[in-house]
């Protein structure tokens, strides 16, 4: 079953991430894919994440398919103009890639090629419209194409953005532009996430809550201070502190599993997106702890 069909079937879905490496040695990445195979419903393939140059997401999405995973092809607007984006979308389509996640993309100043010219010819909302057009047989200039795409397109949202109002307005624009599913920035406060979901449930879109496992109280503080849209509540930081250094990771995984379980049991959202960031081997463990395996 495709990711789209699984989501529409009402099953609580789990997606994870595969980060293409820098360089052509893909042994570790393949190993991560093998860990996730048969466990998660789909994997996001990141697109030069944090503006750090790596293997392109399309090639890795294709390899993910060859390894039995359903890829969600992440596409940012940072590195390609509208011609490049559409051309790559058509390319992804003929390779059999079905899901695309449309994002504006981290700025080049965050990455390892700081002198690069950022493109941003279009942005996330407009990219969603482009995908919708290609699905309907027309390119962005309105030209008829010979054969259209059939993408299931999604986008991202930050439920704990501050201020929240403009973020929610953009969320609606993305829905109007054709987004069918959303993966969120990492969330740590389920009660606050419920408030967001109350709003999101007004729209016919699927929401996957984002998770980044906390490895320590220090990491939690770092996220709070440095990563936009992430807010780890003090109670969780205290819990990690109390666990001590040796047990901090276990505690972090416990917190994630506990939250995922609650989301599923209370039917708060449609699934979760686990961003393991190098700890892919922990994804099945967390899923088991959350009662998903």
């Amino acid at each position: 079953m495709s990711f789209k069909d699984i989501l529409n079937s009402g099953k609580f879905v789990v997606t994870a991430e595969v980060g293409p490496p820098k360089g052509t040695d893909i042994k570790e990445m393949i190993h991560h894919m093998e860990i996730l195979k048969g466990k998660v419903d789909a994997v996001n393939v990141t697109d030069n994440q944090s503006a750090v140059m790596r293997i392109c997401s399309m090639a890795v999405a294709k390899i993910a398919m060859e390894h039995g995973l359903e890829p969600i092809f992440q596409m940012t607007c940072r590195d390609r103009n509208r011609i490049g984006l559409q051309s790559d979308l058509l390319g992804a389509s003929i390779l059999g890639i079905k899901n695309v996640l449309c994002m504006t993309g981290d700025h080049v100043s965050a990455g390892d090629h700081k002198g690069a010219k950022p493109v941003y010819d279009v942005e996330s909302v407009q990219l969603l419209k482009i995908v919708d057009g290609l699905n309907n047989g027309k390119d962005m200039s309105g030209n008829e194409m010979k054969g259209s795409t059939d993408f299931f397109q999604g986008a991202v949202v930050t439920p704990e953005a501050n201020p929240i109002e403009p973020q929610l307005i953009k969320f609606e624009k993305k829905i109007r532009a054709g987004a069918k599913f959303f993966q969120t920035q990492a969330i740590y406060d389920i009660e606050k996430f419920k408030d967001f979901m109350k709003h999101a449930r007004k729209f016919p879109v699927k929401i996957l809550a984002g998770f980044v496992v906390l490895k320590s109280a220090g990491m939690a503080n770092f996220l709070n201070n440095n990563v936009p849209g992430i807010r780890v509540p003090q109670s969780l930081i205290d819990e990690l502190k109390a666990a001590g250094k040796e047990k901090a990771l276990d505690t972090g995984m416990n917190i994630t599993a506990r939250h995922i379980k609650q989301l599923k049991e209370e039917k708060i959202c449609d699934g979760v997106h686990i961003m393991a960031i190098g700890m892919e081997d922990k994804v099945p463990v967390i899923m088991e702890m959350a009662g998903l395996l």
């Binding site: 940072r78 504006t104 950022p118 942005e123 403009p166 307005i169 624009k173 936009p228």
Partner: peptide, 15 residues
């Protein structure tokens, strides 16, 4: 810096 035309990106931190 991204010339976005339809609202803030996920990189907006406390405004």
């Amino acid at each position: 810096p991204k010339g976005i035309l339809n609202g803030p990106c996920g990189g907006c931190k406390d405004g």
